[in-house]
Design a protein around this nucleic acid. Sequence first.
DNA 1: CACTTGAGTTAGAGGTTCTAACACAAGTTA
DNA 2: TAACTTGTGTTAGAACCTCTAACTCAAGTG
Lengths: 231, 231
Amino acid sequence: MVNVRRERFREETKAEAKRIALEQLAEQGIAGVSVNAIAKRMGVTGPALYRYFRGRDDLLNDLVRDAWHDLADAVEASVAATEGSPAPDRLRAFAEVFRSWGVTQPHRYLLLFGTPLPGYHAPQDTVLMAHRTMSALLGVLPHEGATTGSSTLDDQLVAWAGSRGEGDVPPAVLLTGLRAFTRLHGVLSLEVSGQFGPMGIDPALLYRAEVESLILGDSEVRGSTRLSGPG
Amino acid sequence: MVNVRRERFREETKAEAKRIALEQLAEQGIAGVSVNAIAKRMGVTGPALYRYFRGRDDLLNDLVRDAWHDLADAVEASVAATEGSPAPDRLRAFAEVFRSWGVTQPHRYLLLFGTPLPGYHAPQDTVLMAHRTMSALLGVLPHEGATTGSSTLDDQLVAWAGSRGEGDVPPAVLLTGLRAFTRLHGVLSLEVSGQFGPMGIDPALLYRAEVESLILGDSEVRGSTRLSGPG
DNA sequence: CACTTGAGTTAGAGGTTCTAACACAAGTTA
DNA sequence: TAACTTGTGTTAGAACCTCTAACTCAAGTG
């Protein structure tokens, strides 16, 4: 019989270490996450934490894994909550939840989508976590469409979806979803890394403009500039 | 009379240190940039480099500044080379140069657009460098358009452009340019940080699809899925 | 010839990750 | 009850890191 009390204590200790690590991450960035400092704040010496994590990389790995999990939970909850609503409303809700998740904890967003960690290679289950978020997005898109215009890209999209049992989604939808994500991320990542700060532009307005443009299609945005017009 | 030989030697030493720092950055990421290690590779002891940089942050600052400068040079050259061509061609050229700059040196791209450095706050001239790249993009867009649909955003865009003597560009064009940038960055940043690797999707195809979509407007992309259709 | 300036050195403080060896308490088993 | 195993903590220390202080030495200047 495994000692369940000890097991629980162990989990609590790991959780506390990760909680403090997240504080350090928020306050001082990734370089400020220090095994020694975490241990000190917990009232133990540095090497004690090596009973719980193989090392600093292992701890950071856990933070990444938790963040993917948490993000997927958030967007899946949004998708579930808007079931039955019209597609544009569902996409708006998805986008808002996605942005909220990012701007309220920029350090975690950057942990997932910012500069990759030095020796970090995403383990298989991290890839699956990312898929959960992507699947949620695909869930709010209408499942119709024709072709992407590139058969090579079509093949890659279908293979990608098929590799995780989503082979029934047409490639045009996959492309729409993937591109919707890259467009949301394009605005959000710049906001989260503070690039709009010195520009005096409210990122929320820009983000929502992008969302509406996603819904309407660019050329239908009221008064937008046509790039294909005379140069 | 200032000693010009010594001055030149000093500049060469700084340049060598930065060159080695870039190598370390490419090989081991930002955490691998070490003043000590740079000095060792140069054949001097660690503290010697403190004659040339106030510290590690100062050196990294220089790398950021150089990268902004370099990127601006690249895109400005592209814009200049395509003068007189139709707008779509100019935008395609701009986008290709931008992507090339990023994918051939991901570490530098991430230095500008990835996770911000811990204690880093962009100095004023870095902001100006970013403006150079943005102005280049605006230079290949047709200067026409009506309104953005949000007067608040309009005001912010005009203030932003006006703050650096570009007050004659209408807000709709500014928005188009800014959004074009966020969309390119959305795909490119994910490619550069390796997110497409495990997906088996060629980022170049996705990027070019985004560029064509920028030119045509989404709803005109052949066979694309309308998000505003029935959900 | 004396002085200033710049660039290098070593020594060292204080931080980091991480390993090795040891102490001790709790639970298990003979 | 006594011996053993396991988990969790400790200290010591190696090997790095940034950065400061104090010193040496060479080159150029008045």
